[in-house]
Simulated assay, not measured.
Amino acid sequence: MMETKTSHLQNMELWKLWKEQGDLEAKKAIIEQYLPLVDYVSNRLAVGLPKNVSKDDLGSFGVMGLMDATEKFDYERGLQFETYASWRIRGAMIDGLRQGDWVPRSVREKAKKVEEAYQRLEQEHLRSVTDEEISDYLDVSEKDFQHMLQEISITTLCSLEDPIGDEESETRLSMLVDEKARNPEYKVNEFFLKESLVKAIERLTEKERIVVSLLYYEDLSLSEIAEVMSLSPSRISQLHSKAILRLRGSLGRFKTQLFNE
């Protein structure tokens, strides 16, 4: 992760000048301080993207996300701006790419079919299904299935602005709240979410769990994970795609069961 250029006290002073006095120079200083974060996020995100995606475009989207984070961040809540801004930057990059409509509808449809296949088969067999079983269900060869995974890898990226429930207003970003300000309803939802996620992760294959762990918990890039696991980056991308599609299918199933009980 990037190194900060100012001390904590200096940082707080900048935030006070910007938020309390509207000092534009302070805002500019904050943005300049965290610009390396845009490069960091774009470098990680670019690994799983097609080669035709421009890093300059990612950078432009990321800067807009950083500026938005600077506008909306509440420094008095005690949260880390670096973490908040990283999510905003990543979300802005993904949203920017989506608005460019560079992912063909056919690819999105394939992703939906694979996700539904995982959900239906794993609900039926109550275990992690194999590539062969998914291929048979989709009526394609295993080679074609692997190619499909490569095609739809980008669709397994998600934005903070994506709805996580039936209500459009409930997004991942809306769930980023102060640890000290959680209410009982939030804690109940968090409990069931964690419980469902644990069950879903247990259904992943060993390699898929390793990829998820290294990517989201150890903060490694896909290329770094490829080196650790002695696999090609494209294979790591496939494992990541399968893991996310399995998790989406499982979480969708658990959500249905939860609200039907």
Rank of each mutant, 00 (worst) to 15 (best):
M2G: 00
T6N: 12
Q10C: 06
M12N: 14
E13F: 09
W18Y: 11
W18P: 03
E20V: 09
Q21K: 15
G22W: 07
D23N: 12
K27N: 08
K27I: 07
K27R: 14
K28T: 06
A29K: 09
E32M: 14
Y34F: 10
L37S: 02
K51T: 14
N52V: 08
N52D: 14
V53A: 09
S54V: 10
S54D: 11
G59K: 11
G62H: 01
M64W: 04
G65T: 09
L66P: 01
D68W: 11
T70Y: 03
K72F: 04
K72P: 01
K72L: 08
D74R: 06
Y75M: 07
E76S: 13
G78E: 02
L79C: 13
T83Q: 10
Y84C: 07
S86K: 11
W87H: 15
R88L: 01
G91A: 06
D95G: 05
R98G: 12
Q99P: 01
Q99T: 13
Q99K: 15
V107Q: 00
V107K: 00
K110A: 00
K113I: 07
E115D: 08
E115W: 01
E116P: 01
Y118I: 03
E133L: 07
D136W: 08
Y137I: 05
L138C: 04
L138V: 06
L138Q: 02
K143V: 15
L149H: 08
I152Y: 02
I154H: 04
I154S: 07
I154C: 04
I154L: 05
L157S: 09
C158E: 14
C158R: 12
L160W: 00
L160C: 08
D162Y: 00
P163V: 02
G165V: 06
E167T: 13
E179D: 11
K180P: 02
A181E: 10
R182G: 15
R182Q: 14
N183P: 08
V188G: 06
N189C: 02
E190Q: 10
F191V: 15
S196F: 05
K199I: 05
I201D: 10
I201M: 12
L204V: 03
T205V: 08
V212H: 07
L215Y: 14
Y217I: 14
E218A: 15
E218L: 12
L220Q: 11
S221F: 04
A226T: 00
E227D: 11
M229H: 03
M229E: 12
S234T: 12
I236Y: 02
L239K: 00
H240R: 10
S241R: 00
I244L: 07
L245G: 00
L245C: 05
Q257E: 15
Q257P: 06
